[in-house]
Nucleic acid binder design. Structure first.
Lengths: 338, 338
DNA sequence: TTGAAAGCGGTACCAC
DNA sequence: GTGGTACCGCTTTCAA
């Protein structure tokens, strides 16, 4: 005996039509342009819809209209990351116009990003949002010819694929160097990710340039591995003190690391900023609350998402876009740690 | 003059077929069951695919196969939240089998969750993942009759809609009460969200029961508002000291709040745990690193995601599921703050 | 091993 | 204001 219950059999437009004694076309109209349907018919159809619990099949609609109201976003990491904040803002902005967000997590891998873009493009999103501006030529070409709006975020570039909203990581790193110099520190280190994190690399590049501009000695670099968690930052401090005991200031590639490093110093009785000054990047939630509080660069995480969303909404509504490249800037936040 | 370039016109199966001199059917086979196609034909088709940069239209495929390889997940918040960790693990697990994750952010609003579920269901996902177990009767019924696997997460319930993976927030709260009692604290407070956060409520309920079981005085409750950020936790401490200066221990509804509260105490010179003991919930990344470190409950954020993903993969592959309710437990982490 | 034809569940366009 | 009909791009079934 077959015990599986008969499949619930979703009702279709035609089922509703039959129930209401009208054509499928009219039901479709009730759903999309109710104003064009006579009051009486509309009510009859509506009640049939309710009775049957009819839920339009968006897959079919998408095929027919060749539009999906779905936006794809690809980010390096979803968990404990500022990108999640950007996604929330993006999602909220898009939701105001009925667009939904399909997120792909590339796990900081360029190859994986390439695959994701291909796979996602097959879903025919109405637009795509990417993180960063460095990607393979193939993917770039694919996107350029895909015929949909593309927003690159979190970085700036002179020639984006299409749209671009972010800030200059390079300039931020440069500013940190200048600040550190002004404060009198001279034996400077950098702790952060490099491989597979182009934005962190940019910061270091800017930082290096800044130091060089002030005639300072080359930066002492400690590269850390994949999940750049606070305890990795703490370990970074230990390595720094071992390899470069003379260092008097350190710039962390992200606050996530910096907070760990800062707390490790507190724990070990290393005076911050007297013995070692610390500058972070990102201005995380706790960065203003630690003792000492963390000097850092605040970046417009949420704003990147909302502005990217607005650009897309404009573009998708056929409105003109004033500027294809939006620099949202960053803010130097001086606190106690440096 | 019309300056808009002619639409790039994506190539379709038929275009590839024509290029390769075969039928559309054969091209489809090359893509889905290459083994059934003669070597020579296959190569010819493949090169046509490459030449044309053909990317299969998944919307059309989805309509034809009535399966989308898309899983919908609805969470209360995407940003700076443990749910993002769950999503990352879920996404990674599903990706191993070519499923993608469509995330909806309900912003902790039950009404918004209802809407989201309806909207998302229209996209015909192959399964749906929800956060928590409390929802409107209507939505529950809708999901129960939708004919797709449903996983409720982050909580346990005796009668899930379908599948359920999480832990008992209530039991965790209860354990915290017992611990606090054992450590000799007697004037106990709770600071956390209540409205629109059923899990936090559960914790408080369990906490209350635990305290009552030990004959302790009613808990001093300070409810905080929507984004439960660290600085809200810090403000909570101030309010606590003002309203209940006699309090000797406080249980925070989440580590995000607790870290803020803890650092506020450090900043103000309030001895932790001597003057005020602090217990958090969630074991965030920095919780082990603060000075003093935070005593808390570690919850299986990522595991919830991976287990939910595996349950779904099993179900979608038609495999039997041993247990519909999976209790992943939690772990009491004793540190320095209490 | 390959191809022709009929869907999948909607929408667009054009009559009535 | 309403209905008929040809698609949207792919898969499925059945023949050849």
């Amino acid at each position: 005996m077959d015990m599986t219950p008969p499949p619930p059999k979703r009702s279709r437009l035609e089922d509703v039509a039959r129930q209401a004694g009208v054509s499928a076309q009219t039901v479709s109209r009730v759903l999309r342009q109710p104003a064009l349907v006579a009051e009486a018919t509309r009510l009859r159809v509506q009640s049939a819809i309710d009775r049957l619990g009819y839920l339009p099949d968006l897959v079919a609609r998408n095929l027919a209209t060749s539009t999906t109201r779905m936006i794809v976003a690809i980010i390096p990491s979803l968990a404990s990351s500022p990108f999640a904040d950007t996604m929330q803002a993006l999602s909220a902005t898009l939701a105001t116009n009925g667009y939904q967000l399909l997120i792909g997590d590339s796990n900081y891998s360029p190859e994986h990003e390439d695959e994701l873009v291909r796979a996602m493009l097959g879903r025919r999103p109405d637009a795509i949002v990417l993180t960063g501006t460095s990607r393979s030529k193939k993917t770039r070409a694919l996107l350029a010819h895909a015929g949909l709006p593309v927003v690159e975020t979190w970085n700036l570039t002179a020639n984006p694929i299409d749209l671009c909203v972010g800030f200059s990581n390079h300039a931020a790193g440069f500013d940190v160097a200048r600040y550190i110099f002004k404060r009198g520190y001279r034996r400077v280190a950098f702790i952060g990710r490099l491989r597979n994190d182009p934005r962190s690399e940019d910061r270091l590049r800017g930082f290096r340039e800044g130091l060089r501009g002030h005639g300072m000695s080359p930066v002492r670099v400690i590269e850390v591995g994949d999940p750049a968690t606070p305890d990795v930052g703490a370990a970074g401090i230990d390595e720094l003190l071992r390899r470069y005991p003379d260092a008097d200031a350190v710039f962390f590639g992200s606050d996530r690391l910096a907070i760990g490093g800062l707390l490790a110093c507190v724990r070990r009785g290393i005076g911050v900023p007297d013995r070692l000054a610390i500058v972070g990047f990102g201005d995380f939630e706790v960065s203003s609350l630690t003792v000492p509080s963390l000097t850092t660069i605040a970046v417009p995480t949420r704003e990147i998402g909302s502005v990217a969303g607005e650009l897309l909404l404009a573009r998708l509504a056929g409105r003109e876009i004033p500027e294809r490249i939006v620099d949202l800037g960053y803010r130097f936040v001086q606190r106690e740690s440096a």
